[in-house]
Structures are given as structure tokens and as C-alpha cells.
Design a protein around this nucleic acid. Structure first.
Length: 722
DNA sequence: CACCGGTTTATTTTT
DNA sequence: TAAACCGGTG
């Protein structure tokens, strides 16, 4: 028996061996889909004799792509260098690097991240004199990105959004192109356009990619689907793996319907069902099956465990969130004493904000933890600054980067100067960098000199780039720009400097990975890596409990899993309660959470918890109720109180109540405050007005608060009736 | 441009 | 509650 096949089950084997034509593998959680994917690729290369360049494997994360490469490399003892195993976005970037000139961009285009998109929208809105307050750039962003992938028209967004989008969207796109920048959506959109408009390019790639594999197919969006279609037209040797029950990114445009579409668009699709689960105990799987079976819109599928029944699920209900933390912390310590490592345990929750209570509690107890999915390394200010410098060195016409660092660190080029420059460029069509030398530029005196000095500095850096290696270059950059000096006066300068050093290591590594010696090309590659790898690499195997959102847990597994805050409103979230579509996605999220657990599963919640400053008591999550009680051992408050009725009424009233209260508070303060009046303050309690001056007043509170100067009509102040 | 104080707002986000 | 954000002021 072939060594690539011998430890696979029948379904897995079939998935690996069905090489020709379209194949759809429905892979339940923990059914060994990565194994199937890697074996299939290895089989194609080793047994079928397919050259490795003719295979295209697409994943959703860099991590998954890296893992796949590593596994294939070790299966076949060969190098996977430059193999087409990558994310959609990396693949597009790679294709566009070659051919983007057909579309009017230049080869050294740069990729901007989400924060940059927001900034860009802000800039565009300002230049259109649009009010940034009625509709915030951040609100507009998802719609703008959506417009690129969804078939909807701007009108369908309704007013006032439509008016804004009509103005902002075209200019946003124009600005990006002028600056030779692309956002994440553009990577897909432009690649599609390229393949559609350039038949010879399309042919080239269709011929090259004889075999396609797509991981996490349920998470593909419309553009990604189109891309697969375009690339696979010729033969239709497309292998997709997915699980509709694990589709949790619909809010980002993922379209489960792509699975059905695939069945229609490709002829004679072979379907393989992977239902054998190698991860969790039967008890855990039963619970997961019970939860997910409440979703109407799905194909029936039941996972079977190979791991026995295992322990009962524990369901702990505390009085308060503090109880919940306490219970989890104690349980973790207990399990640790029993032999589980901290890193074997994970706490999952719906919203990031929940991590806080655990962080506080664990810090206090000296329990080691790591929060996964924190603000990424590449989003830190100092890193983005240096990246902006590097981008400007690669492409001096990148006005966006120019603006970011022209006065960072301070070099006396203030907002007024930059505004003048930007206006001038808008009218004349120059890039900011070019405009500095123009005699008609309406900037003179000191600012003009400083701009010229800045330009000279960038020129010097451009020359240096070709002469020295990256280590030296980055040091030079830090010196020349004055960035290093500025860090010395920054109280967090040390950390920032450390981060920059880390970036330096990355640059150095890439220098060794790519087979080019041209520094500029190399730098472009590095910048691309940085842009596409926005997620910080996992913390080096520290033995600590993982805290993360359920979304972040996808694709991972842990011997011990806690799912916290299982209350109606927290999970599922309030906002999803009214829409069955949203609720089904929440339920899939719960399914993903449950199926992360290998051996022990703990479900917890609290009777009352603090939410936005007030104490709320929400009923148990409906997901808990979906699980057969005989699978669970109840702990904590559970047994005394039968507080099991699911009701949402208080949540409908919540907003109304708050609004009503605010209005009543406001109406109170319409009345004038005078010296000597007694008042009650929301936070400081009772007090007496000492003096009044215009709209402010001084109030004496009890001694722990003392005298306070406050706005007279502040809603927190209520006048006490005599 | 740094600070203060008041206002607003509180999902998830692989790329 | 708390953190981000905005606008006014020294």
C-alpha cells in the first residue's frame, strides 16, 4: 500500500484519489481535511507525476498555507519554494506583480490595510467637504469594500448612505490608483479584471494550473468564486473542501451558496463526505450535533467520534461574571495539577470585550494567559511609520505614505503646508513629491526649504538602498529621518525601538528567502509580505492559557475548552436575535466553538453581569438549551434556580428605557441651578451648588469627592426638589 | 499641538 | 463603565 494512503479512511482515500474532474469534499470538524489536502497534493506530484508548478492550492490564512507547505515538504522531502500554495490574496498579488501594467498600475504597487482604507476615506471625505460626523469613515468603509464584491447598486443602501457613497466611492478608487495603491478587495477585483480582459494572460494561468484545490470553501465570497471559475475553466480539475456548518464569515461577504453554485456550474461533481471525527469525544460531538441540527438551512450530516464517550460536559452558572472567572480559573488550576499544560486550554467568547474580565482575574491570580488576535504587530504606529518610509523609497509618488511621515518625526512641515501642497497637487496633477520642486507651488520660506530637505533625504535613502544591506539601510533610515532621535524622547521609545528591530529581522529574513538581488524588487516583496501578513505570528510556545474569540478559534483544537458568557444577548448577540439568518450564523459559531474541544468541555455563564455600566440579568443562551441535559453535569447556580425561560423582552425595552431616562434627566437640568441648590450626581452622589458661572458650576460633594467644577446642564446632575 | 472636558458608542474580521 | 473621539483653548 502506498505510504501516502495507508493511514487514511475510505472516504479520505476517495477524496485523495479522485484526481480528475470537480470534487467536493464535505469535511466535518476534525475530520482530517488538512491531511486530505496535503496527501492529495503529494499524491498528484509523486504518483500521478504532475509538475509542482501545475498545482494551485488556496487557503484562507497564511498560517494554513505555511502548514500545508511544511507538511508537503516533509511528505515528499522536497522544497516547496515558489509553489502556488497561498492565500487568495497572496496569489492575486503574485499574479498582479507580473501583469498589473495592463490595468494602468505600475509593478511596484503597494497593498494597504483596513486602517489605511479608513484613513483614505477620511481624506477623500474631507477633500469633498463632506461632514465626517453624520456618517463616519468607519461606517462607510464596509459599504465601500462591499460595493466591490456585491452585485448591489449604491441606491440599494438608501439615504443618506447612497449620496455619500456616490461621492466618496469613485474618488476613493481614483485616489488609490493615483497613488498606485490597492486594498484587499482590489487584489481580487483587479485580478479578475486582468483575467477577463487579457485572454493571453488568462490562457497562461489556465494552462499552468491544471489542478486546483480550495480550502475552507464555505468562506469564499463572490469574487473568490469568480476567480476560481476563471482559473479553472479549461479542465475543471477543482477540488474543494468545506463545511457549511462552519461558515462564520457571512458578515464579510462569504457566501455559503457558493457550495450549491459549484454543484451547478461544474458538471458531474463528485461528492465525498468526511464524517469521521478524530478530534473530540462522542459526548462533545453529540452536543455539537444537537446544537447545529436546529439550523434549518443545511444538509444533514452527523459526525461520529473515534474517541469514545469521555467525560460529561460541565455547565457552570455563577451569580456574577466574577464568579464565572473564578470558577474557570480554579478549574484551570485543578486541571493543571492533574497534568494538563496551560497551553492545552482555551477560553472562547463571542466578543473581544469579554477577554478583559479574564485578564484581570488571571493577572490577579498569577495564571499565565495569552490573548490571541490582539492588535497586530504591523498595526503599531512605529511599524506603520517605517513601512511608510520604505514605501516612499520604493515609490516616491505614494502621496498617502508621504503624508503619513512628512512630519513624523516633527520637522516643521505643519498641517497648513501639507494642505497647500495637497490642494496644489489636486489641481495640477502632480504627486506631492514632484510638486516640491515646482516653482508655482504656493509654499515659500522655511516650509519650502524643509520640504526640499525632506525630498533630498528620500533621494539619499533611495541611493543607499542599492548600496548596503537591509540591516545597514534601516539603521541609516532611522538616523537620517531623525526617527531614532525622536524615540529617545518618547517614554515608550524603548519598546518601539525593539519593535523596529524586529521588523529589521523580518527584512533580513526576506532578503535571504527570495532569489533576487535587486534591492528595490526585494523591498517590494518585503512590503507585500508585511501587508498580507497582518496577523502577528503566534507567540513563541509559551505555556499559557489561550483567550480568544470564537472566530479566532476556527481551525484550532485544544484538549480543554471553556466557552464563556453563554447568555441570551451575549451569545447569541442581541443584534442577531431578530434575524433567523444571523441567528443561524451565531449557531454555527457555537458549533465551531464546541468542536474545538478534544477531551474536556466547559460551558459557563452568569446570572447577572455588568454591561455598559449597568447590571443586567439575561436568560441562559438558547444554545445551552439545545444540548441534552443528560450530557452535562450542572454546577454552580444551576441547580437551585430554574431560571430557564428564554425571553428577550427586557432587551427591546433597554434602549427605550435608557433614552427615556436620559430625556427625563435633561428636562430636569433645563431648570436653572442656583447657589445653594441641592443636587444629586450620577457618580458623585449628593452635593450642594457652591457657585454658578455661565454654563458651569462648582459643586461640593461628600468629602471623598470634594469640590467639582461641572457643566451646569450635564445629564448626570439632577436637581433635588425642595 | 497638547490637554481638557464633554459626547458618543459600544460584534465578529482569516486577507 | 470605559474608551475613543471631537472641538475648543492655552
Amino acid at each position: 500500500m502506498d505510504r501516502l494512503l495507508k493511514d487514511l479512511n475510505e472516504a479520505q482515500k476517495e477524496a485523495v484519489l479522485s484526481v480528475e474532474g470537480p470534487v467536493m469534499a464535505i469535511a466535518g470538524a476534525g475530520s482530517g481535511k488538512t491531511r486530505v489536502l496535503t496527501r492529495r497534493i503529494a499524491h498528484l506530484i509523486d504518483n500521478v507525476g504532475v509538475p509542482k508548478d501545475n498545482i494551485l492550492a488556496i487557503t484562507f490564512t497564511n498560517k494554513a498555507a505555511d502548514e500545508m507547505k511544511t507538511r508537503i515538504a516533509s511528505l515528499l522531502s522536497m522544497s516547496t519554494y515558489r509553489m502556488w500554495i497561498s492565500t487568495f490574496h497572496s496569489m492575486c498579488a503574485r499574479i498582479l506583480r507580473e501583469h498589473i501594467e495592463h490595468l494602468g498600475y505600475t509593478k511596484n504597487f503597494q497593498i494597504i490595510d483596513d486602517d489605511d482604507v479608513t484613513q483614505m476615506i477620511k481624506i477623500v471625505m474631507k477633500s469633498l467637504n463632506l461632514d465626517v460626523k453624520t456618517i463616519k469613515p468607519n461606517k462607510l468603509k464596509p459599504h465601500i469594500l462591499n460595493l466591490k464584491s456585491a452585485p448591489e447598486t449604491i441606491e440599494s443602501y438608501g439615504e443618506p448612505l447612497a449620496t455619500y457613497l456616490h461621492k466618496v466611492f469613485p474618488l476613493y478608487q481614483k485616489k488609490l490608483k493615483e497613488n498606485n495603491l490597492v486594498d484587499f478587495e482590489d487584489l481580487l477585483v483587479l485580478t479578475i479584471r486582468l483575467l477577463e480582459e487579457q485572454p493571453q494572460v488568462r490562457k497562461h494561468y489556465q494552462q499552468q494550473f491544471q489542478y486546483l484545490l480550495v480550502d475552507e470553501f464555505q468562506d469564499t465570497n463572490n469574487l473568490q468564486y469568480d476567480l476560481i471559475r476563471l482559473l479553472s475553466d479549461e479542465k475543471g480539475n477543482v477540488f474543494i473542501v468545506g463545511d457549511e456548518d462552519q461558515s462564520i464569515y457571512a458578515f464579510r461577504g462569504a457566501n455559503i451558496d457558493n457550495i450549491r453554485k459549484f454543484n451547478n456550474d461544474y458538471k458531474n461533481v463528485k461528492t465525498v463526505l468526511l464524517e469521521k471525527n478524530y478530534r473530540s469525544t462522542n459526548t462533545i460531538l453529540k452536543a455539537a450535533n444537537q446544537v447545529i441540527s436546529e439550523n434549518k438551512n443545511r444538509i444533514e450530516k452527523t459526525l461520529h467520534s473515534t474517541r469514545g464517550d469521555g467525560e460529561k460536559i460541565r455547565y457552570f452558572k455563577g451569580y456574577s461574571a466574577r464568579d464565572e472567572v473564578e470558577y474557570i480559573a480554579d478549574t484551570i488550576e485543578k486541571l493543571h495539577r492533574e497534568g494538563y499544560a496551560y497551553e492545552d486550554m482555551a477560553i472562547l467568547y463571542r466578543a473581544n470585550s469579554t477577554s478583559r474580565m479574564f485578564e484581570e482575574g488571571f493577572m490577579h491570580k498569577r495564571l499565565p494567559y495569552k490573548v490571541i488576535g490582539n492588535t497586530s504587530f504591523f498595526k503599531r504606529k512605529e511599524i506603520k511609520d517605517i513601512v511608510a518610509y520604505l514605501r516612499l523609497v520604493v515609490n516616491e509618488h505614494d502621496d498617502y505614505s508621504f503624508r503619513r511621515i512628512v512630519n513624523e518625526p516633527r520637522r516643521g512641515i505643519g498641517a497648513t503646508t501639507v494642505e497647500k501642497l495637497a490642494n496644489y497637487c489636486d489641481n495640477e496633477g502632480f504627486s506631492h513629491y514632484e510638486a516640491i520642486e515646482k516653482t508655482t507651488l504656493p509654499v515659500s520660506g522655511a516650509p519650502a526649504k524643509k520640504l526640499k530637505a525632506f525630498k533630498n533625504m528620500i533621494e539619499t535613502l533611495q541611493k543607499r538602498l542599492g548600496q548596503v544591506d537591509f540591516n545597514v539601510f534601516l539603521d541609516d533610515l532611522l538616523d537620517l529621518t531623525g526617527y531614532k532621535k525622536a524615540l529617545e524622547n518618547d517614554e515608550r521609545g524603548d519598546v518601539r525601538y525593539e519593535n523596529i528591530q524586529e521588523l529589521k529581522t523580518m527584512l533580513k529574513e526576506t532578503e535571504n528567502t527570495y532569489a533576487t538581488t535587486d534591492k528595490e524588487t526585494l523591498l517590494t516583496y518585503v512590503l507585500e509580505d508585511i501587508a498580507l501578513k497582518s496577523q502577528e505570528d503566534e507567540k513563541i510556545d509559551s505555556d499559557a492559557v489561550s483567550l480568544m474569540t470564537l472566530h479566532a478559534a476556527k481551525g484550532l483544537e485544544f484538549p480543554v475548552v471553556f466557552i464563556a458568557a453563554l447568555e441570551q444577548g451575549m451569545f447569541p448577540l442581541y443584534r442577531s436575535l431578530e434575524s433567523s439568518k444571523d441567528l443561524e450564523e451565531e449557531r454555527r459559531l457555537m458549533y465551531v466553538g464546541l468542536t474545538r474541544a478534544q477531551q474536556r468541555l466547559f460551558l459557563t455563564n452568569a446570572k447577572r453581569r455588568q454591561l455598559y455600566g449597568e447590571s443586567v440579568a439575561n436568560p441562559d443562551s438558547m444554545f445551552l438549551k439545545a444540548i441534552d441535559p443528560t450530557l452535562m453535569k450542572l454546577e454552580g447556580l444551576n441547580r437551585e434556580h430554574a431560571d430557564n425561560e428564554v425571553r428577550y423582552t427586557r432587551d427591546y425595552n433597554r434602549t427605550k428605557r435608557i433614552r427615556a431616562r436620559r430625556e427625563s434627566l435633561n428636562s430636569y437640568t433645563e431648570k436653572d441651578l442656583n447657589k445653594g441648590d441641592k443636587i444629586v450626581h450620577k457618580a458623585f452622589g449628593e452635593g450642594v451648588v457652591v457657585s454658578v458661572a455661565r454654563d458651569q458650576c462648582v459643586i461640593a460633594f461628600s468629602k471623598e469627592h470634594g469640590l467639582k467644577t461641572l457643566m451646569k446642564n450635564h445629564p448626570a446632575i439632577v436637581k433635588k426638589e425642595e
